[in-house]
């Protein structure tokens, strides 16, 4: 620790700050724009107004887009969490080489470019006559979210002794009860993180959504997309600011919680 700052170290720190700045900079533009009193995208000109926030709350199109996103994201959490968790537990129990090979399957959606997925899914839903329906969007988003759930739950299972399933069965509980009563409570953290990932994958998914929705399902990103094309409404800036604010609040709560927990558990 007594090393004086060497050149490479300074370089790394500089680059790190540049990257952080690059990531955060838009926030400093978005927030002021959302407070403009004009009807178009502009910096507030001495006058601050909350009219665009008002639009968000009052305009039924925004509210319905928000509700659509909520429905789809919640559905995605349920579906991807169920399938991803079962896949992770199954492969964890099989173990060894066959599991190592199969492990690639649930991760495939990560490798396939979104446009390719989008094209494939839109063709599939057309054939099934399910284009622009909630189940189609939820299933599509669930496929995209599956790798995240699978990875977080698998990581959680890593630290669980495989034999607890056998132990539960030797004590008289069937396979179903052994998995749900014994394994699931031990991977709660993985389920929570996986669910969170799934929610946000769906919440800001646009590429696939563009291909498979029309009028019926109109999610928030979809609404932002079409509004940006039609007009440049500062309501978008207001919405972005709100979403950033919510993210910051949630992250802050989560961080303080983990910090408190760490302080509570005694060091061994």
């Amino acid at each position: 620790m007594e090393n004086r700052s060497s050149l490479p170290k300074v370089l790394v720190i500089t680059i790190a700050w540049l990257v952080i700045g690059f990531l955060i900079a838009p926030m400093f533009v978005t927030f002021p724009i959302s407070l403009t009193s004009e009807r178009y995208l502009s910096m507030p000109d001495g006058e601050i107004s909350f009219r665009h926030y008002q639009t968000l709350v009052e305009d039924s199109a925004w509210i319905s887009a928000f509700m659509d996103s909520l429905i789809v994201a919640t559905g995605t959490v349920v579906v991807s969490l169920t399938i991803g968790t079962l896949a992770a537990i199954g492969l964890w129990q099989i173990g060894g080489r066959p599991a190592q090979m199969l492990r690639i399957l649930p991760l495939l959606p990560l490798i396939v470019p979104p446009v390719v997925s989008a094209l494939a899914l839109s063709r599939a839903w057309v054939m099934l006559r399910m284009l622009d329906t909630y189940p189609a969007v939820i299933i599509s988003h669930s496929i995209l979210a599956l790798p995240f759930v699978f990875m977080t739950v698998s990581a959680s299972l890593e630290s669980v002794d495989k034999r607890i399933v056998q132990a539960a069965r030797s004590l008289g509980s069937g396979p179903f009860r052994s998995v749900f009563g014994i394994v699931i409570p031990n991977v709660k953290a993985g389920l929570f993180t996986g669910g969170l990932f799934a929610f946000f994958v769906s919440w800001d998914e646009i590429v696939v959504t563009l291909f498979i929705t029309g009028r019926n399902v109109f999610t928030l990103p979809r609404k932002i997309w079409s509004d940006l094309r039609d007009s440049i409404d500062p309501a978008i800036a207001a919405l972005s600011s709100l979403m950033i604010a919510v993210t910051i609040v949630v992250a802050a709560i989560y961080l303080t919680n983990t910090l408190l927990k760490q302080r509570k558990t005694p060091k061994e």
Partner: peptide, 16 residues
């Protein structure tokens, strides 16, 4: 689960 034998596993496999 129907055999009704007590089993002590390697590493004990207690429920954490």
């Amino acid at each position: 689960e129907k055999r009704n034998f007590g089993v002590v596993f390697q590493g004990y496999a207690l429920f954490p």
